Computed example of a mutant assay.
Amino acid sequence: MRRNPKIIRKNWSRSATPGKRVPATQNRTDLAEKYFVTDFSAALIPATRLSNILENLEQGQSLPLGAVTYLQQLRLVNLSRLAQGEITYEAFRNTAAQEQTAREHALKVENQKKEAERLKLIEEAKARELVRKAEYERERQRRESDPKYIAKIKNQQLRARYGLDQFIEKQLFARLMAILRRLDSGNRLTEEDILWLTTDGEDYYTESLQMAFHEREAEFYAAEYKRTNDPWSAVNASGNYRKCNQSRKAHDLLSSIPANRQKLPKLNSAICTTHGGAMRDLHRFDDALKLGEQAHTLTPKDFRPCTLLGAVNIEMGNYSIGSEWYEKAEERGASQRSIDYDLRSILLRADNAKREQLKAFLLNKAPDRYKWIRNLKT
């Protein structure tokens, strides 16, 4: 507990010799109060230069010249005089208290001045920030009202919608943006558009753009089927629904075709093949096999049912049967490229174990024919 300094000081003698003024018990706070230096934090900290000086004074030890000089540097003139025996403690005490009060007042004034300066700097910074924000807002409004800027932002948003964040060659930019605007406005792409996207613009025919194209086509043909009841429109709509990952809609649409409108073998085969593809997408493989076999019976010379049966059997793990169906499809006109595309899609979707099994089967069956598999990145 801190002692009352007034009580402590009553126990100190008036002798001019500091060593004769040691009370029975004393700590650093007492010493700091006795010598009127409580406003110096170093006086309260052990082993500091000022703390050591106070202890030496209290023990009556003479101070070296460096210590006296140090007290004078701290502007503790009267304390340095006391230490040198130039004045008595009573004379020191009469002026030291006033000096301490003056120091504390000066420190308070200085701190207030610093705080006022700090607050001023904060207010000035706030004012500058307000000016900066106002200027930024004016610039933003000016920029965003610029027709060129508006067009630029719209183009960026349109490209982002279709996954086109890469660099676009200047000579191809206008054609590509016209296609995107046409598709985004709800219109179908022309045959010329698709030809361009699959040739000169193939680097920009992104998956998102393909999905949007097939969805637009599916919606068009579905509306046509609703308007005309022509089953071919339902087949075309379903084929496009499959290509934009909406096989459930394809299944529902094909299931709605009345049986009496499926009498022509070629039409019925197309319905079964497309429906079988939708069942394959939905992992209803048994239904897909039945529809594929029905389509093959209706049009035994058409490669499309064979391709379907090849893909379904491969996905079910019936590699030999699936490979035989792919061979039949190739004999009936299917291209190796389309078959490879099917197999590549199956490999990419399969888990690691099934992927390795299928790769081993194909490479063992025809290593030259399927050498592309070795470089397949999964």
Rank of each mutant, 00 (worst) to 15 (best):
R3P: 04
N4H: 12
P5S: 13
I8W: 07
A16V: 10
G19Q: 06
V22I: 15
D30Q: 01
K34M: 13
F36H: 08
D39I: 03
A47H: 11
R49W: 08
R49Y: 14
S51N: 15
N52E: 14
N52D: 14
N52W: 01
E55K: 10
L57A: 02
P64H: 10
L65F: 09
G66S: 14
T69F: 06
L71P: 00
Q72R: 12
R75C: 08
R75F: 07
V77L: 10
L79M: 06
L82W: 02
L82A: 05
A83C: 00
Q84R: 09
E90H: 06
A91F: 04
E99L: 05
A102W: 10
A102M: 12
R103P: 08
L107I: 09
V109W: 09
E110D: 12
E115M: 11
K126G: 02
R132M: 12
A134Q: 15
Y136R: 11
E137R: 04
R138P: 10
R142T: 12
E144Q: 10
K148H: 13
Y149L: 05
K152Q: 15
N155F: 02
Y162I: 04
Y162F: 15
L164G: 01
Q166F: 04
Q166A: 02
I168F: 05
F173H: 09
L176P: 01
L176F: 05
I179R: 02
R182E: 08
L189S: 05
L189I: 07
D200G: 04
D200K: 03
Q210Y: 01
A212F: 02
F213V: 09
A218Q: 00
E219W: 00
A222E: 15
A222G: 06
E224P: 05
Y225L: 05
T228I: 03
D230N: 15
P231I: 05
P231C: 06
W232N: 07
N236M: 12
S238N: 04
S238L: 01
K243E: 13
N245K: 13
S247R: 03
K249V: 05
H251P: 01
L253P: 03
S255F: 06
A259W: 07
N260K: 07
L267W: 10
L267H: 09
N268L: 09
A278N: 03
M279Y: 14
R280P: 02
R284S: 09
R284C: 08
L289K: 03
L289N: 06
E293I: 09
L298S: 02
F303S: 01
R304S: 10
L309P: 00
G310S: 06
Y326M: 11
K328N: 14
E330Y: 11
Q336P: 03
S338R: 06
I339D: 07
D342T: 08
L343T: 05
R344I: 05
R344S: 14
L348W: 07
K354D: 08
R355G: 04
E356A: 11
K359N: 09
K359W: 07
L362Y: 08
L363I: 13
L363Q: 06
N364G: 10
N364H: 13
N364I: 00
K365Y: 12
A366W: 08
P367W: 11
D368G: 00
D368S: 05
R369S: 07
R369M: 07
I373C: 06
